[in-house]
Design a binder for these strands. Structure first.
Lengths: 155, 155
DNA sequence: ATTGAAAGAGTCTCAGT
DNA sequence: ACTGAGACTCTTTCAAT
């Protein structure tokens, strides 16, 4: 893991600007930050080498593709030592798009994306509940995503 | 909102391939899918016009930037009719990166990213608890993100 | 480290099919 | 609707500072 912050103000400004607009050209970003496009290029290359910037991701409208259901699942484990084994099983379920090991009520927290409620039911009943080590789950279906955005990186 | 699927197999293949690698060139993607680079270009342009593809996002390592804490917050509202008003308040808190209106135990579900536990405490105590309409919250701090990935778009 | 310019690679447009 | 080629723009490299 890369240790923190030998990043200067310009690095942080570049990251913040590209989090807001990942498609801006180096020349334009250079103008905005009062350096040359070449400098932007060198800085980004360095940030990528250090794995601080990990490339670009396609942003898609899942609803438009028919993926209408987002659900959050709180998972109770029988023993918390089962975490790794259960995580491995959950990873093999493609509908589970994110998994976190958490403090608090639940041992783990999963996010599931499916086309409809039937598919969600199937994942919960026929896949999740059969995994050894999972005691029970609680499901929160998202009726509406109010917003989803990036952190603001302060400089 | 764009209604579903007048998308053909090629559209879905393009989306799936670019979700796996957003930086592949049109020429290379064309080779992979046995069409010309020009065709890829036209298709992606159409997908962007229809707002199915919403551009690219910068992927960054938040930990490397010093943002070490991810927490999920279940929020109980006094009355669920307060949703819009509370959502508006929550949107003005930059540490809250995602908010969903959910079924189940909680009325809403938020995700918070901060630099450390102190900042999380500050957001929870001094910001969240002062919002009118929030009855109480439950916090789940992520100790580890096992994985985070895209849906697999079936074709 | 930053710059500016030249080389290389990619996107975008369009006439032809 | 797809193709291939030309025009254009962007990324990448590099010698100079």
């Amino acid at each position: 893991m890369s240790l923190k912050l030998n990043l200067d103000k310009l690095d942080l400004q570049i990251i913040q600007a590209m989090m807001e607009d990942a498609e801006i050209s180096y020349a334009d970003l250079g103008k905005k930050l009062f350096v040359s496009g070449g400098t932007i290029h060198v800085r980004i290359k360095k940030l990528e080498e250090q794995n601080i910037v990990k490339g670009r991701k396609l942003a898609v409208d899942l609803k438009a593709l028919g993926y209408d259901v987002i659900a959050f699942i709180g998972i109770y484990l029988e023993k918390s030592s089962l975490y790794d084994a259960v995580a491995k099983e959950l990873r093999s379920i493609p509908e589970i798009v994110r998994l976190n090991y958490t403090t608090g009520n639940y041992s783990m927290f999963a996010e599931i994306v499916t086309k409809d409620i039937q598919q969600l039911r199937f994942v919960l009943h026929d896949k999740l509940q059969n995994i050894k080590g999972i005691e029970r789950t609680e499901t929160f279906i998202s009726l509406e995503e109010s917003f989803s955005r990036n952190v603001v990186v302060d400089q």
